[in-house]
């Protein structure tokens, strides 16, 4: 299959769409800058297109996360922003956590994020404030002008629904 064939392009697009968001979030966890993270992942995919063959890589997920990790730390070094925290993170990502485990972790986050967005509006809003913004139940109640009792109820219901959705997705 050549790079120009329609089948190759659509295979590449499927991979891009599946991994772009979790890869950007992964890079952002290193770079702490969403614009830089997006640039880094653009570089990763450009190189992936130019130098690799989508249909010959057995595990594109591990491959892409490995490239994303390398690229993100390269960017930090080139900008001389390699802090103690970043050094510690690099060691952790290299020594402690295998890339396979890291990529699984981010793919799980992606699924959770997508499935929360599929919940009914009220459940979705409350779970997002709780899990994405880190609000307490009381803060959510104040923010949405509802009772804490309603928040507790919607958190329980939202998680029961989310479990059903995740059971099928995983």
């Amino acid at each position: 299959m050549t790079h120009d064939s329609h089948k190759y392009k659509s295979q590449f697009q499927v991979i891009f769409k599946e991994y772009y968001n979790p890869l950007c979030n992964f890079a952002n966890s290193i770079l702490r800058d969403s614009a830089l993270a997006e640039d880094a992942i653009q570089d990763v995919f450009t190189s992936f297109w130019q130098k690799s063959k989508v249909d010959t890589i057995d595990n594109p997920k591990a491959f892409l996360f490995q490239c994303a990790k390398n690229r993100a730390f390269e960017v930090l070094r080139s900008k001389k922003k390699m802090s103690d925290y970043a050094l510690k993170l690099e060691r952790e990502y290299t020594d402690v956590l295998a890339i396979e485990e890291l990529s699984e972790r981010y793919m799980l986050k992606e699924k959770l994020f997508r499935k929360i967005a599929e919940l009914p509006p009220q459940c979705q809003k409350i779970l997002k404030l709780s899990k994405l913004n880190g609000f307490t139940y009381k803060e959510i109640a104040t923010e949405l002008d509802i009772s804490v009792k309603t928040v507790e109820n919607q958190i329980g219901r939202g998680l029961r629904l989310l479990r059903l959705k995740m059971a099928t997705a995983l």
């Binding site: 979030n25 997006e38 799980l108 986050k109 959770l112 994020f113 913004n133 989310l162």
Partner: peptide
């Protein structure tokens, strides 16, 4: 799920 979703803070939709 409650534990898994603790890591979602700051997760973005690019």
């Amino acid at each position: 799920l409650w534990r898994d979703s603790q890591g979602l803070q700051d997760y973005q939709d690019f």
